[in-house]
Design a protein around this nucleic acid. Structure first.
Lengths: 168, 168
DNA sequence: AATAACTTTCAAATATATTTGAAAGTTCAG
DNA sequence: CTGAACTTTCAAATATATTTGAAAGTTATT
């Protein structure tokens, strides 16, 4: 397969994967494009490669910066901004985990805590079923939360090298 | 907080969480409803509780069955179907991981493999950047894939009890 | 201070995803 | 069989999310 075709398939696939994980398709495609570019790209480059408007390019690049996956760079003598993506995929993965943990897991945990004890007769089977569910979910969600925290703090070599051995 | 309010907040939150993880909001709400119901519910019950149409209720219940999270049950003397959700949250979590792995991770891995070696001069920096990206991603994705596989095979007590200790 | 080179914003347009509801399909009791 | 009780389907309607592009904003240069 030639490079242009491969690039295209990759950006497509990254976009699809992103959108099934709650990340806007175009944002994921911009990310893919920057990931495989050896040099930083300008807004124009992005608009052109992905055939998207200036506004769209701008918004999605901002979002990626907000997620900590992309940063601005400057070329001497050029006034416009260039963008480049973090190339270390392990860092990308931990950064995404960190953000999603903060944005989604933490609020859910907070709510689950609030829902932990409803008023009323603990013998009522509706109340009992509810409390049991909430507690079960709370257990698994907070375990997942702590696991992610540990993974984020661990370094790549640990993950790559030891994880599977430890799990045996 | 009283039960009806708590139920409502929970179904709401589960719906929101679902939709940021690529699961249709209503499907997640139906799931939440069944999770906290001590007894199986009929299509009518679901329609009424969530104020959704028959078709919608039917489609989402089917999808949940398809995901292995909900099953049909019957009441003697009743002709209609009742539905109940798997109550063990650990099983729910592993089931979801299993499905997403199959539906999303595996196809991406297959593609990454195909993209692994593009034709052309390995010294060309565009080709080099592309190959490096793809290989890096392939490494992390397949590691994640294997990790999920291991977690799925492990049992709950392992996860709950030993995971954090092992990670230290 | 005026202009040029750029970036940001956001209301309107478009595209995508979900929901509805009525018709068609199925199953079962009589 | 037939009709009643139920489930499924799917085209059209609705709701939600994304995209556009032109105007407004910003910043550097002369």
């Amino acid at each position: 397969m030639k490079l242009p075709e491969a690039k295209d398939k990759f950006m497509q696939a990254w976009g699809t994967l992103g959108s099934s994980w709650g990340i806007n398709r175009t944002m994921a495609q911009v990310h893919a494009l920057l990931l495989i570019s050896p040099d930083p790209l300008s807004a124009e480059d992005i608009m052109e490669e992905l055939k998207i408007s200036r506004g769209n390019a701008n918004m999605n690049v901002r979002a990626l910066i907000d997620w900590g996956l992309v940063s601005k760079t400057f070329k001497s003598g050029e006034r416009k901004e260039f963008f480049s993506a973090e190339k270390d995929i392990w860092k990308v993965a931990t950064q995404v985990m960190k953000e999603r943990r903060k944005r989604e897991l933490e609020p859910v945990l907070k709510l689950l805590h609030e829902l932990s004890n409803v008023e009323g007769d603990k013998k009522d089977k509706n109340i009992k079923a509810f409390n049991d569910s909430i507690n079960g979910i709370k257990g698994v969600v907070s375990k997942a939360d702590k696991t992610i925290e540990t993974i984020i703090k661990a370094d790549e070599s640990w993950f790559v090298g030891s994880f599977l051995k430890l799990m045996k």
